[in-house]
């Protein structure tokens, strides 16, 4: 891990390490004691990177990034939230267990520094099963799932691509102030909002205390977006189809990055 400083000439390193028996993100400067750095936990660093970048000034930061982190960082820099020149990525390849947990179709980072690439998981069984159901059956399944939601906002705060300044779901128009569950609309609004940027990292599903299969929902929505617009989130060049006109020209008034 120290190689990050010598090889990449970065000023800071963002990684996860054991702190008081738990895993916590840590921002190291050159010469700090690294402690027990962890690469076996599937936590997203992109989200934390976005939070710390405003305080770093002109420092260059190296971050331990999986493929999904890499895609999330591409989505952020595409929207001008992050300067990609100031971020170097230390590619971390997921192991077979993590890939099968996320049912990941694209686990290999563009440049691997740690670990070895494993094969992508086969097509997601859960999504296939859900899409094989009839429309009323799906409704039954999802109402039962959404009823478990206790409005903890874990999915929102852990999401690497949830970066609007003002969260729509914190308005009482869409989420009632009192009472749980927050209703059928809550997770659907989130899905629609993330439709053009979700990188399928699975952080929402891991964060969810109620075990709602959110990753399956995200994958289904991403599949819809792909069918409609042929767009897959996660590369730095293509502008989201929701932010372009029908001819693919960018909109004139692109203040609305979310």
């Amino acid at each position: 891990m120290r190689i990050a400083f010598e090889e990449m000439k970065a000023d800071r390193l963002l990684a996860a390490r054991t702190e008081h028996g738990n895993v916590a993100p840590v921002l190291l400067a050159r010469g700090d004691v690294p402690g027990e750095l962890r690469t076996d936990v599937p936590y997203q660093m992109a989200n934390i990177l976005l939070r710390v970048v405003p305080y770093l000034g002109s420092d260059r930061v190296a971050v331990v990034a999986r493929k999904c982190d890499e895609k999330a960082i591409a989505e952020m820099s595409k929207r001008g939230l992050l300067d990609p020149g100031k971020v170097s990525l230390i590619g971390l390849a997921c192991d077979a267990r993590q890939v099968s947990e996320c049912r990941c179709s694209d686990p290999c980072p563009s440049k691997v520094h740690i670990g070895e690439c494993v094969k992508a998981a086969p097509a997601d069984k859960e999504v296939e099963d859900l899409l094989a159901k009839t429309v009323p059956e799906r409704l039954e399944f999802w109402t039962a799932q959404f009823r478990k939601c206790n409005k903890c906002f874990g999915c929102t705060s852990n999401c690497p691509v949830c970066f609007c300044d003002e969260c729509l779901l914190e308005e009482k128009t869409f989420t009632p102030e009192k009472g749980i569950p927050p209703g059928f609309a809550f997770h659907l609004i989130r899905s629609i909002h993330l439709a053009d940027k979700c990188v399928e990292c699975g952080e929402c599903e891991r964060a969810c205390p109620a075990d709602i299969p959110l990753l399956a929902l995200r994958k289904m929505v991403n599949r819809d977006v792909k069918e409609l617009f042929g767009f897959v989130a996660g590369d730095g060049e293509t502008t989201s189809p929701l932010l372009t006109t029908l001819d693919g020209e960018p909109m004139e008034d692109d203040h609305d990055v979310c």
Partner: peptide, 29 residues
Amino acid sequence: IGDCHYMTGNHRTAKRIPLTAKVLETVGI
């Protein structure tokens, strides 16, 4: 399309609403 008072307003709608309909179909409406 092309007649929008705000130039490209309805281009946005033309992409959003079909997506919404498709996502709603995915969860059972």
